[in-house]
Write a protein that binds this DNA or RNA. Sequence first.
DNA 1: AGCACGCCGACT
DNA 2: GTCGGCGTGCTC
Length: 829
Amino acid sequence: MEKKVFAEVIVDNKSTKTDRLYTYIVPDRFENDLKVGMRVLVPFGRGNKKIEGLVVNIKNDINIKVSRLKYIDSLVDNKPILSQEMIKLGLWMKKKYLAQYIDVFKTLMPTGITNKVVKYLKLNENIDECKIQKIKSINQRKIIEYLKHTNKADVNTIKRNLNIKNIISSINSLCEKEIIEMYEEIETEVNKKYQKVVYRKFDADNKNEILKKLNSRAYKQKAVVEFITDIKYIGLKELMIKTNSSLSTIKALRDKGYLSIKDEEVKRNPINNKAIVENKKLQLTNQQKECINTILKNIEKNKCNKFLIHGVTGSGKTEVYLRLIERMLKWNKQAIVLVPEISLTPQTVERFVGRFGDKVAVLHSRLSLGERYDEWRKIKEGKVQIAVGARSAVFAPFDNLGLIVIDEEHENSYKSSMSPKYNTLEVAEKRCKLEGATLILGSATPSIESYYRSLKNELKLLKLTERANKKSLPPIEVVDMRKELDKGNKSIFSEKLLNAIKENLENNKQTILFLNRRGFSTFVSCRKCGYVAKCKQCDISLTYHMNKDLLKCHYCGFTMRTPRICPECGSEYIKYFGVGTEKIEEVVKHLFPTARVERMDVDTTSRKGSHEKILNKVKNGNIDILIGTQMITKGLDFHNVTLVGIIAADMTLNLPDFRAAERTFQLTTQVSGRAGRGEAQGRVILQTYEPEHYSITTSQAHNYVEFYEKEIKIREEFEYPPFTNIINIVVTSKDEKKLYTFTKRLFQHLDKTINNNIKKVEDIELIGPNPAPLSRIKGSYRWQILIKCKNSKIESVKQILEETITSNKFNEYFNLFKISIDINPNSIM
DNA sequence: AGCACGCCGACT
DNA sequence: GTCGGCGTGCTC
């Protein structure tokens, strides 16, 4: 018997039960053309429904009975859509983040390109009316009626419109009677955009000859000939406008053989070219030069290709990236620049496009499907060498990648919240390793994890300590809000901040007020002594649960009654903190009725372009006071802003999260960097109930290293990352009672299995099951199990998790419960 | 998930 | 016998 070739395929079917590779026989006619990384159509399931699959493996030997296998139906791509390295990266991600194949590989490809086979119905052309009369079934009659009135109808639309439950059997029965016919069409969500282009088919020298041949009254045709002589081709629409001619004129010329009209693909261009100004090279400071040289030397000598640039705000990290990219282009290599989604404003994009022009593709969430698809293909086809984008741009399909830059490396938007819940830093690192590229992380406030790794020499640490404009960082004045209370000031603003705003308004300077009200959780604190209700076991602030009037620790489940008087000082000023930006806006407008106030947070920037609109208003001096959440902490460079007010630095400090101190330090440092960017000296006023907290004192001193040293000790003592891994398992269900029982069973099973299978169990700690901090979303209840485990045990724990979740023991419940696993989440909220 | 298969009751 | 409803179990 002839030797067969087999392909392992990831199939476009989203279900935990079908999350595996399927083997298909490669028909002889495809043997030469089929490559790993191509998409194919395969018959799947009992009905052999044709669905799309991605080939990840081609083999000659398999250990399944060939008789059980089906044949690949057809090829979707003529070239691999994913490179070998990207497939390796995807398989690695599946394992790393315990995600489904299909979820992983859909994130590696642009959204909407998946081919779906859609089934359409039509009435048989020569139907016999008698046959129809014979039908007694009401449902079948309904279908025939429907088809009589529509010219194109797919099965799903019919199902939706007619609301027939068991529609398939009715359709099948009609098909058998040969009254209707079913036909298939392959469809995708996004398509290439085509444009008609007119080509000149005559030689430019023959122009006069042709003009003579044309009818003397055909002046429109003559004009077109004149026009197109100077060029070779032009878009049909453009030609019609420029020569004021009609389609018939051009068609007439085509019929005479002087022109040809072709359908050509045009790529949508999301970058507004008019707005882009050239970004000139800046003079490098000595520190920048040294930084660049160190990186290049290390790359050339093949010594190290992972770097962390710790540069203070305004130290010119971007210019360093730009120079390195320039070098990559010289080496014929490509580069990816990742920035947090919220700082992916036109200003950021402009810096890269302004320097490198049409060598840049931009990828972000505000692009339409079509735009994103085109940007993706520009990269794939080698038309651009640089990709700038949010986290998903780490998958930009370059084939000779030289560099990945991750700017603002500490930002939490680099962790995906959708499956696969990947960490962009880890993915970028893996991709660099697979493709021999260099990784550069940059931040003014590096994440504890990255800084820790740099001290262990897993990343090479480079420092930029001076600002490019040689200006010093603005001083931060800390206001102790407890003392304000003693003075009888119960308002949100301290006297100092209030006076500073007043003064700024009088001097026509702008003010930024920052309050991070992100998150739902209010914490409980005493306004007199600063006491915050914390869990004794976890050193994490307790969350107020309104419905039960209890304080609860989301790490260990500890609960206590909400205190009416402060347990520390006995005062009655126990408050639930829940002031948001809206409240601030109201108060500011009341206090300064003539000031022009604008608020910028998720609520006010949801519409496309609203973000830019507000920023432009600030830029043009049409706003006196800008109130915002963390959205305003990044990248804003306004010269007339001289005052930054941080309303409540404690807000992030007391979130029930081990990263609370780190976030507070990062936010205060970043937002302080917004002040005094122009000539005038900036001023930062920071209000807090906990002025002695190290994240406040160190950020006041602009001392990252000191903050790091304090924080890393706490992480070690309480066993938080980077010393341990946290796995967050959230189980969701509509049924509250069953959810509790199930989660408890799952917990006990995991506990038992881990104890039986892994040695040194003291390295692993199971916490829960507890109601998740967001205990109910959209009518679904959520319970959570946390696993803390040391690095050496993570793989075995993950394996147990995978086995448990795919095991039959829990399988039967999958219709009732949804299990989501997050490895090292941003926060456990 | 999505789909076919098969069992069962209702109706001719 | 035929039609339609619903539960079950599998997908290379």
